[in-house]
Amino acid sequence: MTSRSVLAAAESAVLERMAVSRANLVTARVTAHLQQTGGKPTVTLLAALLVGSLVMGPRKIVGVVVRNAFVAWIAKTVRRIAGT
């Protein structure tokens, strides 16, 4: 491998990690917004899913959304149990 191909591979890996972290941030912001608005779906959620699927691809965004939805569900359940 030449140094250019190594640098290109490293740059590609960094850009992919940045895209994943950006999608995680968007999903976390949308989740927080949904919790503040009572869990009602909004245009922001749909826009975040659309942008995430365009940036990361549909396969990765589904994993991110499912994982974050599962974490939000667990947090809501724990808060509800702890509150009673």
Results as ranks from 00 to 15, higher is better:
1 M>Y: 04
6 V>Y: 11
7 L>A: 13
7 L>S: 09
8 A>S: 13
10 A>Y: 10
10 A>S: 12
10 A>K: 15
11 E>M: 06
12 S>V: 01
13 A>C: 08
15 L>T: 03
15 L>P: 01
16 E>C: 06
18 M>W: 08
19 A>N: 07
19 A>K: 09
20 V>R: 11
20 V>N: 03
21 S>Q: 15
25 L>P: 00
25 L>H: 14
25 L>W: 11
25 L>M: 08
25 L>V: 08
27 T>V: 13
28 A>C: 05
28 A>S: 11
29 R>I: 10
29 R>C: 08
29 R>Y: 05
30 V>S: 12
31 T>D: 11
31 T>L: 14
32 A>C: 06
33 H>V: 03
33 H>R: 12
33 H>M: 09
34 L>E: 08
34 L>T: 01
36 Q>R: 13
38 G>P: 03
39 G>K: 06
40 K>Y: 04
40 K>I: 15
41 P>I: 05
41 P>Y: 02
41 P>D: 04
42 T>L: 13
42 T>M: 11
44 T>L: 15
44 T>M: 15
45 L>Q: 07
45 L>H: 11
46 L>G: 15
47 A>W: 11
49 L>K: 14
49 L>W: 15
50 L>W: 13
53 S>W: 06
56 M>Y: 02
56 M>T: 14
57 G>C: 10
57 G>K: 09
57 G>V: 06
58 P>W: 06
59 R>P: 00
59 R>L: 13
60 K>L: 09
62 V>W: 02
63 G>D: 07
68 N>P: 00
69 A>D: 02
71 V>Y: 11
72 A>Y: 01
72 A>E: 01
73 W>A: 15
73 W>M: 13
73 W>H: 12
75 A>P: 00
77 T>L: 13
78 V>P: 00
78 V>Q: 14
78 V>C: 09
79 R>K: 06
81 I>Y: 08
82 A>K: 03
82 A>H: 03
82 A>R: 03
84 T>Q: 05
